[in-house]
Write a protein that binds this DNA or RNA. Structure first.
Lengths: 144, 144
DNA sequence: CTTGACCTATGATCTAGATCTAAGGTTTAT
DNA sequence: ATAAACCTTAGATCTAGATCATAGGTCAAG
């Protein structure tokens, strides 16, 4: 069992952030002490770590609340609803993955162009690096 | 040449957001009309689209400002500085990619468990789905 | 039994990012 | 030449997310 300060320190966040997450239905301590202190279990800690990771990749707290609410349960006929939610988030994640992969490619290209190869780019910005692998996406150049 | 309203509409954002980006050194119109109207070029539009995509994958405006400032120039001896910045962002992107890939795996697992296979999970949450491919990362289960 | 480090609750403050308000100038169409 | 639809500026407001301030209860150590 962790008290609020212990859990906060273990996960490198502020005590108040834990109270904030509780008020916003993201994570409640499994119990309270006699005198009202919050008591968090190991499981609570895992949920918190999930929240922090999800935040780190750009999910909003509202989205994280949804993710945490997912309960795939064969006995439950709300299964279709869950599947829709999961598949929506999955599409979201995959869109981000695709976009990030483009950034990765561009940044690699810039990194290589820089200081490295003797006769590479004479002048290159992230925009140009990105453009060179994005032609087929959206723009129609009508430069005639 | 786009006027502010035209560019905003084309990119589905608010006029005020463009003024905000200008004030915050992210994107300035290439010129002004006689009467002071902002005039944006096609190039400006590309920068804006870059900003919007970068935002979409979780870069802050401050980070985007840095990315836009990257100018790999062989004639410029600040090249080492640029490389450090680029490589820092690259590491950042790759960390996000790894994390997102884990979410993708977990969500796929949930999606498959749900409604699909007749005898799959009886009860499964995102946490459990995530744990099952994260054992080697941090937790030590001592359930004996 | 009191000091200091912790905890409680409520409500205010801060930041980033975006949008809105107010007071007025510009352009286009009638 | 005037109404409608734009544009300008400066500054206020809003949201999400987090942190701080205040006033007080709890608890371990001296």
């Amino acid at each position: 069992m962790y008290r609020i300060g212990e859990l906060a320190k273990a996960c490198d966040i502020n005590n108040d952030t834990l109270r904030f997450y509780e008020k916003n239905a993201l994570l409640s301590p499994s119990s309270r002490s006699e005198s009202g202190y919050r008591l968090y279990t190991e499981k609570d800690k895992e949920i918190l770590q999930f929240i922090l990771r999800a935040k780190g990749v750009g999910f909003t707290l509202a989205e994280i609340r949804e993710l945490l609410s997912i309960e795939v349960n064969k006995a439950d006929n709300a299964c279709a609803d869950v599947k829709i939610l999961v598949d929506t988030k999955l599409a979201d994640v995959e869109r981000k993955l695709a976009e990030l992969t483009r950034f990765q490619t561009s940044l690699k290209r810039l990194s290589d162009a820089c200081c490295g190869g003797e006769e590479s780019a004479e002048h290159c910005t992230i925009l140009e690096a990105l453009e060179s692998n994005t032609n087929n996406v959206r723009h129609e150049h009508h430069h005639d």
